[in-house]
């Protein structure tokens, strides 16, 4: 193994022979091969997947998921695809400021670091929402909206409670053409927007703007109605 080390400095030498019995070496070798095959398969399926891979993964779930080897939507690549790399943000409209959209999560914002939030986590959350939007999983986005609304309302100042009226996920297209003008297909646009409905029992619900027939009920924010 010395050949793997490049230093001229003395390195602890390794014994030539192994103290592990041959039978055990075979067992460990098989385990190592199976382990790296499973890990490799997991990484491949985050990139491209087939039906056979899916079936194997489902069969290996106790080991892969239970052992934290399985990474759904693994962010192994730096840039997933162009549209997901555009800056995104979640903004809210409150009862207090009905005409103003206040950003609460921004993929480009640097203010999170100073306010104690982990900026990378907020980027991951925004990116997860973009992935859900790509898969037309509006309900998933609304669930996340619910938790954001509850979080914003529960962490606001006690003396003047914040009541969220509307919430939306936007993508900001800042790709410019040669004249410095935004390209027509990359302008800022709303991906999902929802209104917050408040029920008499104090619970809140979210009504998506596009599909107004679907209402996702949320937990009680603990504030009652405004």
């Amino acid at each position: 193994m010395d050949r793997y080390f490049v230093s001229n400095l003395p390195i602890p030498p390794m014994s030539a022979s192994s103290s592990i019995p041959l039978r055990w070496r075979w067992v460990i070798s098989c385990l190592i091969l199976c382990h790296f095959a499973a890990v490799g398969l997991t990484y491949v399926t985050n990139w491209r997947r087939s039906l056979i891979q899916d079936n194997i993964l489902v069969w290996l779930q106790p080991y892969l998921i239970g052992g934290c080897w399985y990474q759904e939507m693994l962010p192994i690549e730096w840039v997933s695809s162009e549209n997901k790399s555009f800056p995104t943000k979640v903004s809210i409209q409150t009862k207090q400021n009905p005409n103003e959209w206040l950003p609460v999560l921004e993929s480009r914002s640097e203010r999170h670091a100073s306010s104690g939030m982990v900026p990378a986590k907020s980027r991951r959350l925004l990116r997860a929402m973009m992935e859900l939007s790509d898969n037309e999983e509006t309900e998933g986005i609304l669930r996340i909206f619910n938790s954001i609304v509850v979080h914003v309302e529960s962490t606001g100042p006690k003396e003047s409670p914040v009541f969220v009226d509307r919430i939306r996920l936007e993508q900001l297209g800042e790709k410019k053409d040669e004249n410095g003008e935004p390209q027509s297909d990359t302008r800022e646009f709303t991906i999902v927007e929802a209104s917050v409905a408040r029920f008499e029992n104090g619970e809140i619900g979210l009504i998506p703007k596009i599909e107004s027939h679907r209402t996702v009920r949320a937990r009680n924010a603990g504030r009652g109605n405004p």
């Binding site: 669930r143 996340i144 938790s147 954001i148 937990r219």
Partner: peptide, 11 residues
């Protein structure tokens, strides 16, 4: 009442 509450996580 976090940014990503258990309910959203479960979903």
């Amino acid at each position: 009442s976090g940014w990503f509450d258990p309910e959203a996580g479960r979903y």
